[in-house]
Design a binder for these strands. Structure first.
Lengths: 123, 123
DNA sequence: CAGTATCCCGCGAGATACTG
DNA sequence: CAGTATCTCGCGGGATACTG
């Protein structure tokens, strides 16, 4: 089965492998620079393209557009066209599935907040 | 807890801002392609350079080296030289602080595992 | 074993402009 | 408003080789 020739441990090792590949799977979908930020904005009620762009500082239309497309592919976003005449009106709605990311987001947000405190303490 | 059903919102909005910047802070430290994988390996008991490189498939020595350096700077890793003669022996130990990342890692791992299941179900 | 030194390339992504 | 079209560039990071 396992081949730790030079090192010991077997249990933690397979645990490690599982964690690694699971985290890799997650990061593949959600590890991009903008992905989680977009999901956060969506879950906070920003549904429109320009609104999203304004909310997520620094993102370009091109990137936002591309990012929304594969969020849709990954089942995290649903695109809804409310009006396709004259000035088009579109909404990007967080799919139910995107709510499963909440635990990830809070874990990350908590850690980030705490880390910021830690950094400030060092100055 | 309640979400304003109107298009204008203020509460959720500032919530969104907080989440966004907190998550950005976290991602800044831990959002790199390799960072979390390295932390996982470290927390699983892989302390040696070559061991880490073997465990984390696909990482090059150059990148691992660089990554370990700023993990050290960020207080997540402690470098310990066990022997500096002849064949140098070094250990990279996960700092106490790195354990605070466990919740992030498990949240991500859980989601990744679940996501993989979901994907398989769609085929 | 634990790294460093180079060389090199792709693509992620910024800036800017345009359209139905 | 909601995007698309280009053009451009840096740097993240792979490959390979070398060293104390």
């Amino acid at each position: 089965m396992s081949i730790p020739t030079t090192t010991k441990m077997t249990y933690t090792d397979t645990q490690c492998g599982k964690n690694l590949s699971a985290v890799e799977d997650a990061l593949y979908v959600v590890g991009g620079k903008w992905t989680l930020r977009i999901v956060i904005a969506l879950l906070s009620g920003h549904y429109r393209f320009n609104d999203l762009q304004r909310t997520i500082k620094g993102i370009s239309a091109r990137v936002l557009s591309a990012e929304l497309k594969d969020l849709e592919i990954n089942g995290l976003v649903t695109r809804v066209v409310l009006a396709d005449e004259k000035p088009v009106v579109t909404e990007y709605r967080p799919a139910e599935y995107s709510k499963t990311l909440r635990s990830v987001i809070t874990a990350l947000a908590d850690w980030g907040q705490n880390h910021r405190k830690k950094i400030k303490g060092l100055l």
